[in-house]
């Protein structure tokens, strides 16, 4: 008798836990061949709020970690994902990719994570500055994470788009609430499992599946979300996000990059979700002037 396969229950990821949606609702996206991908959580507004709370709680600890340590943890995500290559390839194929395209997407994803792992302790040196003010002050500007960043993953990829938007945000010390691609949700959930097994503290990355149309308003009107990164290509949805962002002057970034391109990565994706903080301090200007050699 052939062995009966154990099917996976796809869950959402909030604060380092894997609950089903608190609403008990689900949806069943199908692939091109008409095969159901699974009973995916149709996350509710409450799930979004819970995820934002978890992200806010995790922000202090994550943003204050040594940059080197963040780099190591992110590198660990790549290690864990490498170990699960086959699962991602299968899921991508189930969602409609060819084997070759699926392999390429997973390889690029792993490489992109390694790429951003390496940025963690380097971007600061490039985006910060010491400013030669005319008065007797030492003045410097540094980058600091914006806080909780909402990420609306691109609709046309299951894995690479989400990873391309999430990684620069967390590399820079932000925590994220991710709305996965509604019709290609499998890799998002499996990615959450990878994250969970790679030393990323709970709450740094939160991933929800469901209807963007339903979740976007809650995410974009939430007063504790500092910025939104939008990867979709729906102009009306973007406009709605931008209008809602006004409530607490959220920063909104919309990207239309083709994430499958090797060069769809870079420092600017990190610096977009950074604030610049400038500090002044007086310099004592008595004595010392004649003591140079």
């Amino acid at each position: 008798m052939e062995r009966l396969e154990v099917l996976k229950t796809y869950k959402i990821y909030i604060g380092g836990q894997f609950p089903r949606t608190e609403s008990g609702r689900y949806y069943t996206p199908v692939n091109k061949a008409g095969k159901a991908l699974g009973n995916i959580c149709l996350s509710s507004r409450k799930d979004v709020r819970n995820a934002v709370s978890a992200a806010r709680k995790a922000f202090g600890g994550w943003s204050e970690r040594a940059a080197f340590n963040r780099g190591q943890i992110i590198y660990r995500i790549a290690e864990m994902l490498e170990g699960r290559r086959l699962q991602f390839i299968e899921e991508l194929q189930l969602q409609g990719s060819t084997k070759k395209a699926a392999e390429e997407e997973v390889n690029l994803t792993i490489d992109r994570i390694v790429y951003y792992a390496g940025w963690c302790d380097k971007y600061q040196a490039i985006v910060s500055s010491v400013n030669p003010v005319a008065s007797s002050h030492f003045n410097f500007s540094v980058a600091e994470p914006m806080g909780v960043v909402g990420v609306v993953a691109p609709e046309n990829t299951s894995l690479i788009g989400l990873v391309s938007l999430v990684l620069p945000a967390i590399c820079g010390g932000n925590t994220v609430v991710v709305l996965a691609a509604e019709h290609l949700p499998l890799c998002a959930v499996t990615f959450a499992e990878v994250v969970n097994s790679s030393d990323v503290p709970g709450g740094v990355i939160n991933i929800l599946t469901g209807s963007n149309k339903e979740m976007n308003p809650t995410l974009s009107t939430h007063m504790d979300v500092n910025a939104i990164v939008y990867g979709g290509n729906d102009a009306l949805a973007l406009k709605e996000l931008q209008e809602n962002a006004v409530l607490n002057v959220k920063r909104v970034f919309a990207y239309t990059n083709d994430w499958s391109k090797a060069d769809a990565q870079g420092l600017h994706f990190i610096s977009d979700t950074q604030e610049i903080k400038t500090t002044w301090h007086p310099i004592e200007n008595i004595g010392g002037a004649a003591s140079s050699y």
Binding site: S129, N131, A134, H137, N139, W280, H281, P282
Partner: peptide, 12 residues
């Protein structure tokens, strides 16, 4: 820090 309301063209 130990000053206030200072501005300069070089300072963001």
């Amino acid at each position: 820090a130990n000053t206030y309301n200072k501005f300069d063209p070089t300072s963001p």
